[in-house]
Amino acid sequence: MTSAQDSAPPAIQITGLNKWYGLLQVLHDVNLTVTQGERLVICGPSGSGKSTLIRTVNALEGFQSGEIKVAGLRLTREPAVVEEIRRRVGMVFQQFNLFPHLTVLENCALPLRLVRGLSAAEARDRTMHYLSKVRIPEQAAKYPAQLSGGQQQRVAIARAVAMQPEVMLFDEPTSALDPEMVKEVLDVMVALADEGMTMAVVTHEMGFARQVADRVIFMDAGRIVEQGPPTTFFTAPRSDRTKAFLRQVLH
């Protein structure tokens, strides 16, 4: 975006990506570059391949052809490469996916110890720091089942961000929440964006897109159909499919 970042490789660079599930092609020649510090919102109808696309980035899903680079590193099937890519990429899921057998503290501290090699004390301190940032340090000793959906999702964000990734992926982080809890999660995400985190967010929260996104991407049937800054995307969509989709989500 700015000249200072021209030298750094893009946070995510996807070229000519194709993916099939059996005979069903779910990604068609997707090209996408996310620059460092960019906030990208991805929207599109159900089944358009949004989840699949962001899951290929951290190797939760494979792909048949094309290329993905994360901060310059090309994703291969090599375990060491996958490990390094996942170290650079954090992810938040629609269904929170907190580990039910661990407390909030352990949920965040376990990956810090096992993957980042922190000592128990360091992991606890860092966890508490990030739990404070998502404003629930007082729930650290509870189990996920004892928290509301909004609280669980904030813990999930803290757990991913505490790993200090370079890029954060969000897959519909607020769609499983009751309406009154959506805001508390979006607020945490806005704060994260304000700190300069590179983010790719699959969401239908158009208010969030307007407020935070540098760019909005519309996907349909495995293709990127349209993209642009939120102002033009929302006020002057070009394709009919985008218009039809926007009519649905904006009302």
Binding site: N58, R86, V89, G90, F93, F99, L114, V115
Partner: peptide, 13 residues
């Protein structure tokens, strides 16, 4: 829920 395994993998496990 196999998504838990997915979450663990996304955290580098």
């Amino acid at each position: 829920d196999t998504n838990l395994t997915r979450a663990a993998n996304s955290l580098g496990a």
